[in-house]
Simulated assay, not measured.
Amino acid sequence: MLLARYQIRNLRRVFEEFERDILLPILLGEIALHNIGAFEHRNPGLPNHDAPAGGAEALEGLGHVPPMRPCNAYSISAATGLPRETVRRKIGRLVELGWIHKEDNGHLYLTERAFAHFGTLMNSRDLPEFLETADRVRRVLND
């Protein structure tokens, strides 16, 4: 019940944050995983792939941004199982919102705005609630 309560509250917030379109956070999350997810298991012996010049202007002003690996509508469609046309349409909305930068070659990158907005939300609201829920679950499991 504790986990269900947390998840429902979180889903409601995400639903509202993304204009009541539940596909937008799924797509933004997949793009983020493609862009920066490779650095979770980064091998220091592998080459460092910097964000290309075309996508870098979307990230100006950030202190430290990890190099990003590009993705495109096709890879996001494959990752989510959503039709490519739906993915393209939703990516267009994420671009309009300023959370995704799309290059002429179709490469997609998170923007500074997305990093700043969702990083702040995660630290101010989601992470503390998640940690509190985890502590409560641990206490229940230990009883």
Rank of each mutant, 00 (worst) to 15 (best):
G54A: 14
A73V: 07
A73L: 05
H117V: 15
P52A: 13
R89W: 11
E30Y: 09
L62P: 08
T86Y: 01
A58F: 03
A78S: 15
A73D: 07
A116H: 06
G29V: 05
T86R: 09
D104G: 11
D50N: 08
L46P: 00
K102S: 13
A58T: 02
C71H: 04
G37C: 10
P67G: 05
P70K: 02
R88I: 04
T80Y: 03
H101F: 11
I36G: 12
E40I: 15
G61V: 06
R84I: 15
I76N: 00
V95H: 02
S75D: 14
D104A: 15
K102W: 01
E60Y: 10
T80C: 04
G92Y: 00
N35T: 05
G61P: 02
P47A: 03
A114Y: 05
P44T: 03
I91L: 04
E103R: 08
R84W: 07
P52F: 11
L110V: 11
A32C: 11
S75L: 14
G81N: 03
P47D: 04
T111M: 03
V65L: 15
L94A: 05
I76T: 07
W99Q: 02
H49I: 15
G54V: 12
E85H: 12
R69L: 13
A51C: 13
I91V: 15
A116I: 06
Y74M: 11
R69Y: 14
P66R: 09
P52L: 10
T120N: 05
T86N: 07
T111Y: 06
T120C: 13
E30V: 12
T86A: 09
E112S: 14
I100Y: 01
R84L: 14
E103N: 09
K102A: 14
F115A: 01
G29Q: 02
G61C: 09
A114S: 10
E57S: 10
G54I: 07
E85G: 06
P52I: 11
K102M: 09
F118Q: 03
P66L: 14
N35W: 05
A32M: 12
G29R: 01
L94K: 00
G98W: 10
E57A: 07
G63I: 15
L108Y: 02
I31Q: 05
E96P: 05
L108K: 02
R93T: 08
F39R: 13
R93C: 01
Y74S: 09
L59E: 06
G63F: 14
D104W: 13
R89C: 08
V95Y: 01
N48F: 13
E112P: 01
G37K: 02
E57I: 11
L110S: 07
E40W: 14
